[in-house]
């Protein structure tokens, strides 16, 4: 049910994106003097195509119509029975994985990682890139994954140190240091 709603939302969003690029493309000029292709031609054409395709996809989802498979799918049907639809169908991890986490726990972890990522990137101008990424890594390992604090801190220090060596010392990339002076 969630996937169906997500699919509907994605198709609607893509239709809007297509419409926006179509309108923008027309604004830039689809054709210029002499009937030549203008700067708006490609965005308008691809935008229109996206709008139409996304609407088709949306209608297919609403009416639960099976869309046309790609060529390879049509061929596979005859060649390989039980063809897995996605790689996930082959993954053997049951609902509870080897760390004893069920689907709900894993979704909670996912949300925590996404929020931590956004916070970490937002903190870059304040505390610097490497410090911010180090905190992100320690948070993911210790808080999200509940790994050993000592090992997590060692792994974080080694990783940040290695990245500093490669990117800052060897490649000479000036990473942002932040107003607090951290790297």
């Amino acid at each position: 049910m969630i996937t169906r709603r997500a699919n509907l939302a994605a198709s609607a969003a893509l239709a809007l994106l297509g419409a926006a690029f179509l309108a923008g493309g027309i604004g830039y000029g689809v054709f210029i003097d002499g009937g030549l292709v203008g700067p708006g031609f490609l965005p308008a054409a691809a935008g229109m195509a996206l709008l139409v395709l996304a609407l088709v996809d949306l209608v297919q989802h609403v009416l639960r119509i099976e869309g046309t498979d790609a060529v390879d799918d049509a061929l596979y049907e005859g060649l390989v029975e039980d063809r897995p639809l996605t790689t996930d169908m082959l993954q053997t991890a049951p609902d509870v994985d080897i760390f004893g986490r069920d689907q709900r726990a894993r979704t909670r972890q996912l949300i925590m990682v996404v929020v931590a990522l956004i916070v970490a990137v937002a903190l870059v101008p304040l505390i610097g890139l490497l410090v911010s990424l180090g905190l992100l890594m320690a948070f993911a390992a210790i808080v999200v994954e509940r790994r050993s604090v000592v090992v997590s801190l060692i792994v974080t220090a080694v990783t940040v140190g290695f990245l500093y060596l490669v990117f800052v010392i060897v490649l000479g990339i000036p990473v942002p240091v932040g107003v607090l002076g951290g790297d």
Partner: peptide, 29 residues
């Protein structure tokens, strides 16, 4: 056509790629 899913969805994604490529200073203009 060879991406292993529904045709319409593959085509949508190709269009999204082209549209993303259209952002910025345009080629030739």
């Amino acid at each position: 056509t060879f991406q292993g899913g529904k045709l319409v969805r593959g085509a949508m994604m190709a269009m999204v790629g082209l549209l993303l490529a259209a952002v910025g200073v345009s080629t030739g203009f």
